[in-house]
Design a protein around this nucleic acid. Structure first.
Length: 561
RNA sequence: CGGGGUGUGGCCCAGUUGGUAAGGCGUCUGGUUUGGGACCAGAAGAUCGUGGGUUCGAGUCCCGCCACCCCGACCA
């Protein structure tokens, strides 16, 4: 491909608001172009990278025994309503009605559709196992698209769904897919780790995320020297068995905090450390109010809390419910004299003389100590882990790293096969729902992750397997007839040999071309200039190492294949 | 959905107390150049996010709306 015939924009224009390295480089190197918040076009260079990634994914899916299908992006809303997920999708879904009044969802994921599809096509256990995959655009009206291509409203996903007769079969498929994922990400040149994760709204029993460590990811992974590895969403910590220190203040003292509701406001105003404050949140557990206590610098993890209380239905109370339960408006709740169950994080046991709400408008207490001023209904690990927490093994410490999720695999079970209907007759003629698994890869995110992991100050250093081109030919002085003729000949030779080659045929100064080539990051740069041409040679430069070697013109194609 | 910010050629932006828009980058043309982001000359390109209001006159003042960015909330 010739540079001058490609939609490669001027690479010197650096757009603003490019925060993540991968975002900035993808814009500057002419891979993508932003159209709107979280909506991007892929320009020729970027699209070629996606195609390379897709090629690798296809090969590995094939090896794992999955067959490719293509399901519609347009989903009739009735199908979604069967699984009960239509409502939980909330604002994320992009839904609309056509002129005939039929309601559609632009597919954010395909569990419902694939289950419908398979349900009408399988009858017997002999039809299973089945593993289907597709590579398709997904649509989600993300509230907050971030970091360029890392989180967008429209993105390309490889999604696969397995159907088995029993748990054993699911385990086999899950394992095959896990191995395929390892091979895909390795071939794409990524360093990654696999962590246990939350199943979230997908449901199911088990899931693992494939994470790439990079500074601009959205997720956090907790790990310890003892070998613990889990997503922050589900990471647990060891019980530090704190003892309550001797209080210095003999009983809680009330003080005025007019219009100060948040931990931050109070800690700032009265110079109290947030870790020395008790954050009291009111939740509704199976419809009844409960108080939840964590230190001021912690966040409640609702799924851990759900486990400690032992309920399924849990949500934060609204203003009215808080007023009813505590007698005070939002922002002034505290555990003292509260007549509802009090669930307490381990941290709270370790502080005396804490500051917390007084259950009166514009009032807080100081000098509150657990055991004396209030008692816990139950104590446990109910907050998100933090850097430096005790690991679950009780010995090492947890460290949090920022990561980007590039793949996620789930053991779903029968949630969708039951609600949507994908049943088969087993050997005894009994009707059973298929056991499902689902497996996703964010194709765009591989591109972003590869840039995050392979770049330097000058630009991208593509791993060979997913580079948009294998070789870039650069003429030092394009207006020199001999140089141009030699370059044209080489370009033709490479094209005939079926090599992916980009020919920078612009009549630009050498410096401009060198800098652009480094920015775009094609692994091998082939420099054609008068100097080496005199000796019948060309310079071959590696973007990765920066090393240059001289190669005879007639040996170029063979030496680079 | 809350809090903050910004909207002026493709990009970055200036624009005084109201008088219809400046500069840089990029683009195009011609010339000089050509081994790590050249120089000279010329040209094209803007209904100043949008709707209303005040005014003889609005990029500028007032009100509404919209879009985008950041921080939260949310998130297979």
């Amino acid at each position: 491909m010739r540079w001058t015939q490609t939609l490669i924009p001027s690479l010197r224009n650096i757009p603003k608001d490019a925060e993540a390295i991968s975002h900035q480089l993808a814009l500057r190197a002419g891979l993508i172009r932003q159209l709107s918040s979280g909506v991007y076009s892929y320009l020729p260079l970027g699209f070629r990278v996606l195609l390379k990634i897709v090629g690798i994914i296809r090969e590995e899916m094939n090896r794992a025994g999955a067959s490719e299908v293509l399901m519609p992006a347009l989903h009739p809303a009735e199908i979604w309503k069967k699984s009960g997920r239509y409502e939980t999708l909330g604002d994320d879904k992009i839904a609309f009605k056509n002129r005939a009044g039929h309601e559609f969802v632009l597919g954010p994921t395909h569990e419902e559709i694939v289950t419908e599809l398979v349900g009408t096509n399988i009858k017997s256990f002999r039809d299973l196992p089945l593993n289907l995959y597709q590579i398709q655009t997904k649509f989600r009206d993300e509230a907050r698209p971030r970091f360029g291509v890392i989180r967008t409203k429209e993105f390309i996903m490889k999604d696969a769904y397995s159907f088995d007769v029993d748990e054993k079969g699911l385990d086999v498929n899950y394992q095959k897919m896990s191995e395929a994922y390892h091979r895909i990400f390795t071939r794409c040149g990524l360093k990654f780790q696999v962590v246990n994760a939350d199943t979230g709204m997908m449901g199911g029993r088990m899931s693992q995320e494939f994470m790439v460590i990079c500074p601009y990811g959205e997720d956090r992974v907790a790990s310890s020297e003892g070998g613990y590895l889990a997503s922050r969403d589900i990471a647990t910590r060891g019980n530090p068995h704190l003892k309550t220190p001797e209080p210095k203040i003999s009983s809680p003292e009330i003080f005025d905090t007019p219009n100060l509701r948040t931990i931050e406001e109070i800690s700032h105003r009265y110079k109290v450390q947030a870790s020395h404050m008790i954050k009291t949140l009111i939740y509704m557990a199976d419809g009844k109010p409960v108080a939840v206590l964590v230190t001021g610098d912690s966040e409640v993890n609702e799924s851990k809390l759900r486990k400690l209380i032992g309920v399924k239905d849990l949500r934060q109370a609204d203003g009215h419910e808080i007023l009813e339960a505590t007698g005070a408006p939002v922002g002034f709740a505290g555990p003292v004299c509260l007549k509802i169950p009090v669930y307490v994080d381990w941290d709270i046991v370790g502080i005396a003389d804490a500051v917390t709400g007084a259950n009166q408008k514009d009032k807080h207490f100081k000098g509150v100590t657990i055991g004396r001023d209030f008692t816990a209904t139950a104590t446990g690990d109910i907050r998100f882990v933090k850097d430096g927490d005790l690991a679950p093994d009780g010995k090492s410490k947890l460290a949090l790293t920022t990561s980007m999720e590039i793949g996620h695999i789930f053991k779903l079970g029968t949630r969708y096969s039951e609600s949507i209907g994908a049943h088969f007759l087993d050997e005894k003629g009994e009707r059973k729902p298929a056991i499902m698994g689902c497996y996703g890869i964010g194709v765009n995110r591989i591109l972003a992750a590869a840039i995050e992991q392979h770049h330097d100050l000058k630009g991208i250093k593509w791993p060979e397997a997913i580079a948009p081109f294998a070789v870039e030919i650069i003429t030092v002085n394009h207006s020199d007839d001999k140089v141009r003729a030699a370059a044209e000949k080489i370009y033709e030779d490479f094209t005939k040999a079926g090599k992916d080659v980009l020919f920078d045929d612009r009549d630009e100064r050498a410096g401009v071309k060198f800098n652009d080539a480094d920015l775009v990051g094609i692994p091998t740069q082939l420099v054609i200039g008068e100097r080496s041409l005199k000796e019948g040679k060309a310079e071959v430069k590696s973007r990765q190492t920066g090393e240059t070697t001289l190669v005879d013109l007639h040996a170029l194609v063979s030496s680079l294949s």
